[in-house]
């Protein structure tokens, strides 16, 4: 059970804005490039300076130690980053084999060299890396940006199950109108630093 709430939230040219994402809800965020979608997600994860406050349930960001906040309010960046040679080195808590299978990855993926993975494989692995930490809130920056249609649907279905089983709150940046139709309960457009509601599904 976890909700995300923003109050008087300002990060550079974005805001001040208020936003609530309920437990088990998925809110999609669209907007032209440069409108500050990535900046907003980074600031919610407390990776960029900001003013105002973010709450995960009742816990205020500023009152939570930064690493603990980022573990529960987890950002999955658009570009995957790796610091060790083997994929498995980046999974401290191992990985659930059925999750690997659902994203069409073999169990042997943990022994792969990062350098030999395709962009699409890396993007799916990075998502699993974060999911294995069991975050309460997920901030997804175009999580299917480099995936084909089939794998996009696989990721959407895994995230939907995660959201319902863990009652997680999802804030999902996407350009794909079809995807927004499929995954979002509510959606907003970020325009001129403000959120414009695009109505309910």
């Amino acid at each position: 059970m976890a909700s995300l709430r923003l109050h008087q939230f300002v990060a550079r040219h974005v805001g001040p804005l208020a936003l609530s994402v309920a437990a088990a809800e998925c809110v999609c965020l669209a907007g032209a490039s440069g409108s500050g979608k990535t900046l907003l997600l980074r600031a919610i994860a407390d990776l960029d300076p900001h003013s105002g406050e973010a709450y995960c349930d009742e816990a205020a960001c500023s009152a939570t130690p930064a690493p603990a906040w980022r573990r529960s309010v987890a950002l999955v960046p658009a570009e995957s980053q790796w610091w060790s040679q083997l994929v498995g080195d980046h999974f401290e808590h191992g990985v659930a084999d059925d999750w690997l299978a659902r994203l069409d990855l073999p169990a042997a993926a943990m022994t792969w060299q990062v350098a030999r993975c395709s962009t699409g494989e890396r993007q799916r692995l990075v998502l699993l890396r974060t999911l294995m930490q069991a975050p309460a809130v997920l901030l997804l920056d175009e999580p299917t940006g480099s995936l084909d249609q089939e794998n996009t649907l696989r990721v959407e279905s895994l995230l939907a199950d995660y959201r319902l089983q863990r009652q997680a709150a999802l804030l999902w940046v996407s350009h794909d109108v079809g995807q927004i139709e499929r995954v979002a309960q509510r959606r907003f457009t970020l325009d001129n630093g403000q959120l414009r509601a695009n109505g309910w599904r």
Partner: peptide, 11 residues
């Protein structure tokens, strides 16, 4: 970007 990713993972 790598350092930011590690911070985002709660390191």
């Amino acid at each position: 970007q790598i350092i930011d990713s590690r911070l985002a993972l709660g390191h």
